[in-house]
């Protein structure tokens, strides 16, 4: 009985042992690692095989990660493209709405009331009126001015130039003499348009208003401080 037990146990042990030996032999032959002549050679072959295995693993990993990255990059580029577009659009729109400070070459016009009345019968004509500012601004716009400000008040779409007694209101801000009108645009064109014979500036000068026009290389025009409100207007879809 005891001997049978021992025999069975030894048989099982040998079975396990042989399985192990066979697996090991097949592993070694399948990885084509023949015993080298020197120990160093063996070591090298060993490490090469190990690294090869690691490399294969890492390569698989890399492939999956790369495909992931590609996807991420695609989505990222999409979003960045749109955000870039949105940014430039926003910049352009803000400039068109006068919500950003702008700089460029243009002209500066200074209007002052006449110091000595030329026409004593009509003193009023010697003063600068809101209508004069409107006319000048209109003339500047007609001549291609890209941005206009009067005494630091940007002329934008909702800007109103209104008479308020002894002062003038622009963008609901009070402005007074002297009126400094800055305009960005081609200085030659603007200058020519304003100073043409029979033009509005000519008429003002005749009335005794002091008019000073200067061409400038760099004019900074401030942004519009107000808020655009749309209560009744809606975008047509």
């Amino acid at each position: 009985m005891q001997e049978k037990k021992i025999a069975a146990l030894l048989g099982i042990m040998c079975f396990l042992l042989t399985v192990g030996i066979c697996i090991q032999m097949r592993t070694v032959t399948s990885t084509a690692s023949r015993m080298g002549r020197t120990y160093a050679e063996n070591e090298l072959r060993d490490s090469v095989l190990k690294w090869k295995e690691k490399y294969d693993l890492a390569y698989d990993n890399l492939e999956t990660k790369e495909s992931k990255l590609e996807k991420l990059r695609e989505s990222a580029s999409k979003s960045s493209e749109t955000s870039e577009n949105v940014k430039t659009d926003l910049g352009k729109n803000n400039m068109a709405l006068g919500l950003t400070e702008v700089i460029g070459k243009g002209i500066t016009i200074t209007l002052k009331d006449a110091e000595v009345a030329i026409n004593k019968l009509d003193l009023s004509s010697s003063l600068v009126h809101y209508s004069d500012l409107i006319e000048v601004a209109n003339a500047l716009k007609n001549a291609g001015a890209e941005a206009i400000s009067i005494n630091g008040e940007r002329i934008v779409n909702p800007t109103a130039i209104a008479c308020a007694g002894n002062i003038i209101k622009i963008n609901n801000e009070k402005v007074g003499v002297p009126f400094v009108i800055n305009a960005i645009g081609s200085p030659e064109k603007l200058y020519g348009a304003l100073t043409m014979l029979g033009g509005y500036i000519d008429k003002l000068k005749d009335d005794g208003v002091t008019v000073d026009i200067e061409k400038k290389d760099s004019i900074t025009i401030p942004k519009y401080d107000g808020v655009y409100k749309f209560e009744y207007a809606k975008v047509v879809e």
Binding site: G11, C14, F15, L17, T18, C22
Partner: peptide
């Protein structure tokens, strides 16, 4: 032992 080896 021999049987175990062969099976293994």
């Amino acid at each position: 032992i021999i049987i175990g080896c062969i099976l293994g």
